[in-house]
Amino acid sequence: MILLFLIWAVIDRRDAVVIGVVEGSILALGAVGLTLVYGVLKFAHFAHGDSMMLSAYCAFLLLSGVVSGSRPGVDAEVLPITVSDLPGATTEVWKFSFGYGLLVAMALSALVTSGILVVLDRLVYRRLRQRKSGIVIFSIASLGLAIAIRSLVLMVWGPTPRKYTTTVRENIDLPFDITILADQLFILAAAITVTVLAYILLFRTKLGKAMRAMADNPELALISGIRTELVIALTWALAGGLVAVAGVLLALQAQLDPQLGFVLLLPLFAAAILGGVGNPQGAFFGGMIVGIVQAVVVTFDFLSPGYKFSVAFVILILILLIRPRGLFGARL
């Protein structure tokens, strides 16, 4: 059924599908991180969307050094040195609207976000683990952290949406009559590269395999002598990296908006559950599917674009009704 829909969409709504693929690749990055946390730690991480926004703003700070000042609409520069001060960092590369500085900022933001998530695990989730709290307590704690993260972003950068650059974005023409923004091509390429890196980490390295093993069977992982706390820290670090890249790419595609984090939760969870919780490949395709369906559905005349993220909910409910273990099988 989904396949039929996709085929029809490709024929009939090609532009929407292209946008859907771009947005889907961003969702996929977020969903892979979400599904890993879900799989290894067994709880729904409600701070995932807000972590995405935090890392996007973190990259913004590194690029511009700007935070909102004492009055709304007035900004203050707080960083004496920013990534943009590197020679040529802001010169636009090829047809993109940004220079290599964005990549540097994205990488640094990934490090920072990974660090933050690992520290939050140490401070909060590990203590809950030691007390053997139920999964719901973890989720409530993550919701509390989500609220805290969002208000922190609002405090530091204010409620007005921002952008990385204000340069005009250039189109490029691809074969098959497809026109796409150069930036969107970058988003797609970056998302796929990072997913491949994550895949290599998960399937080719010992720690990555240990993460999958823990998602499969935490007690057996413990019995086998796997150092579970180390694996958990790595899971957060990897999720942080994925979250940061997804956040920056999202801000590039749309904009920096503190409110976006919570709204993103639905598509992210829809993607993760669609792909089967704990299944990283599934989450990737789940993200793509959700992204495409969202983009195509809003082109329907009878639906207001305001329902964009509600589409994810409908997908979610359908999946829960028909195949609660997801299209690609859960790993729980």
């Binding site: 004492s70 809950l128 509390g144 609220i147 405090m155």
Partner: peptide, 28 residues
Amino acid sequence: PDLLQTRMPYIRELVLGGLIVAVLLLRP
């Protein structure tokens, strides 16, 4: 001060988010 005044709503939310976590950790 302006710096605080404009941020009061967010500070309040931050405190509340932190409070939830603190209660779960310290006084479940």
